[in-house]
Design a protein around this nucleic acid. Sequence first.
DNA 1: CCTTAATAGTTAGCACACTAATCAATAGTG
DNA 2: CACTATTGATTAGTGTGCTAACTATTAAGG
Lengths: 149, 149
Amino acid sequence: MTTDLGDDPLALDRQVCFALAVAARSVIGLYRPLLEPMGLTHPQYLVMLALWEREPRSVKDLSTTLQLESATLSPLLKRLEAARYVTRRRSADDERLLVVELTDAGRALRDEAEKIPYAIVERLAMPVSELEDLHASLTRVITAATSQG
Amino acid sequence: MTTDLGDDPLALDRQVCFALAVAARSVIGLYRPLLEPMGLTHPQYLVMLALWEREPRSVKDLSTTLQLESATLSPLLKRLEAARYVTRRRSADDERLLVVELTDAGRALRDEAEKIPYAIVERLAMPVSELEDLHASLTRVITAATSQG
DNA sequence: CCTTAATAGTTAGCACACTAATCAATAGTG
DNA sequence: CACTATTGATTAGTGTGCTAACTATTAAGG
């Protein structure tokens, strides 16, 4: 028994993957002008969010938390280090681990960043409840897609 | 009056942008093993979907439809041409326009692609109704984010 | 111990995706 | 008709994001 996806399963305007890709790019585009004065890209912002929550963290820890390959994080973290927002050093306990820590400048950036979520919600001009519904729905998709892709 | 976003507006697990980015990457990752035997990446697949719907299309047309910059599409279309799935030629009416058309091989690929949506829905193991809700929700976000970002 | 396997990061290479700059063709205006 | 602005596409440069191959460290087994 196959699922019924209508007469044209390849119709572009029905593809969830297309809507996901466009929505992600659109929303990230909303962050661009807000992050640019802080000298951050969106993925760098996500790393900073993780570090503002808990610090220090290893690359492995960031990789698990942000669902990014260490191959992606490596150069990104080097750019954050060049921007003087983080430091990178090997752990004394386990020299395989690279420990990422915020600098004072990186910690100070948090105050500035506090404004961003409000600015985004304002620009989206959507009820917060609908954003919460969307978030819950996305979480279910992530679980489904990563459980045994 | 400011919107109430709770006690920590920067909490990673509440960021819709984070959920959007992870969901998009996760779902696109689901397509990878299905598209790889066809020699397509996910953005290339979206271009093919657009062309299977209507053909020929200019780069400008694809740019509007897929919400991608022509700077992104230019090299992508050259790769699709190298793979013998499309042809590229200047329009006779308006030589600014580059006309993209499917080859026979590109058109034939559609039969193979028909299976993909069903394979994805099966892998996601989510009710189609919930995917439809998500799609509607994403469409509203896209409208909100692109209306006057 | 010593070999072997597992783990953590880095590097290289490919493919988006964006901005900015450029170029050619067309459209609009005096 | 000539001048200018607009439009459509390409190129260059930066920054993800992936896989695969590699190095170094640690853990596990005989």
